[in-house]
């Protein structure tokens, strides 16, 4: 029995994610896998990813993982990270690509004309570094994490859910955007918990213990 399957669809380095999971749950088995059967058999699933959304969708399809991810997101504790959050939605501006459509909403790019702070200084894209996460609903995955704690981000696109109620957290750069969503057994974040020091490890630890 695999406790935690980390979905490998060839996009980005999954070692950080699996190392962090092993660190917070040394007694659990963590498997990085592109085998749909292993994903189906796992008790919980982590869906990470880096890179461009059209490439990610293509790789998911070509590895026969699309349905495995949809099934996992419908049935067991499921944590999306970064592109693994964005892919859950219906459509992305990045390459005008369709997503998995598990959650209603879209993925958009930071608007160039908005990218300056209150003093007029230029804000860079990608949004890279440590920014605050404001929790908009109580959730077991926020357990022992302060409201406003900083997490590590690196991204140029963000999600716009159709249903505001699924927002679990937001941040500002410079405008407010949704950085975490929660729906039933799904929790997904734009930032990288595996690179976010103690608070990131706490979130992963919360996920490992989560019983939705």
């Amino acid at each position: 029995m695999i406790d935690i399957a980390v979905v490998d669809y060839g996009m980005g380095n999954l070692r950080s994610v699996s190392k962090a999971l092993e660190h917070v749950a040394p007694e659990r088995s963590v498997l990085v896998t592109s085998d749909p059967h292993q994903i189906a058999a796992a008790e919980r699933v982590v869906f990470p990813g880096q890179g461009a959304m059209p490439d990610c969708m293509r790789e998911l399809e070509s590895r026969g993982l699309r349905q495995a991810v949809i099934d996992a997101a419908a049935s067991k504790p499921f944590l999306g990270i970064c592109i693994g959050l964005q892919l859950l939605f219906e459509h992305s501006e990045e390459g005008d690509a369709a997503g998995l459509g598990i959650l209603p909403g879209k993925v958009v790019r930071f608007t160039a004309s908005d990218m300056h702070d209150a003093t007029g200084a230029k804000l860079k894209v990608p949004h890279m570094g440590w920014n605050e996460v404001y929790q908009t609903q109580a959730h077991p995955l926020w357990n022992k994490i302060d409201d406003g704690a900083r997490f590590y981000y690196v991204h140029s696109y963000f999600v716009v859910p159709d249903q505001p109620a699924i927002e679990a957290g937001y941040t500002e750069y410079p405008k407010r955007f949704t950085c975490a969503v929660a729906k039933d057994n799904i929790f997904a974040v734009q930032f990288h918990p595996e690179k976010s020091h103690r608070d990131g490890l706490q979130l992963l630890s919360n996920f490992v213990q989560w019983a939705p």
Binding site: H127, G129, W130, N131, R150, Y153
Partner: peptide, 8 residues
């Protein structure tokens, strides 16, 4: 509140 400058 904003993105933090990083020390590396």
């Amino acid at each position: 509140m904003a993105l933090a400058k990083r020390i590396i």
